[in-house]
């Protein structure tokens, strides 16, 4: 069981590290929301693995809290991002036009790398 614990926690830990990479790099706020959601799920899975392998049900109520917290957090940030008004930087309240699209940004990055 120790071998299983080490392997499982290593897999979970590297998954959490990759989610942290996306959390740090993610170009938009929604990428970070997705990464945070995944990170919380990985944390709860890690707690469940620990509880299962040590036969210790103490942390099981924490799993319920963490899973509900992940849901509430991602939904509220999604609603916040959706409700944000596009305001112009000059302060005249004028229409700033469309937000910068992801495919345009990718094309600009490709141009810059060339």
């Amino acid at each position: 069981m120790t071998v299983v614990a080490v392997i499982a926690q290593a897999l979970l830990g590297s998954g959490a590290l990759l989610a942290l990479v996306r959390l740090a790099r993610g170009p938009s706020l929604l990428d970070r929301v997705v990464a945070t959601d995944t990170l919380l799920v990985i944390i709860s899975a890690s707690l469940a693995v620990h509880a299962a392998l040590s036969r210790d049900p103490t942390v099981v109520p924490v799993l319920v809290v963490v899973s509900l917290l992940a849901f509430v957090g991602s939904v509220s940030i999604a609603r916040y991002v959706g409700g944000m008004l596009m305001q112009s930087s000059t302060g005249d309240g004028g229409n700033v036009g469309l937000p910068h699209a992801a495919e345009e940004r990718a094309a600009e990055e490709r141009e810059a790398r060339r």
């Binding site: 299983v4 392997i7 897999l11 998954g15 989610a19 990479v21 996306r22 997705v34 693995v49």
Partner: peptide
Amino acid sequence: LLAGAFLCLTAGVGLVRFPDVLSRMHAGT
């Protein structure tokens, strides 16, 4: 437990490698 942990690793790899929010969410869920 090992299969669940492996799925968490694949989610992390997909989050880093995929190009936009929708495909990252596809991997991350």
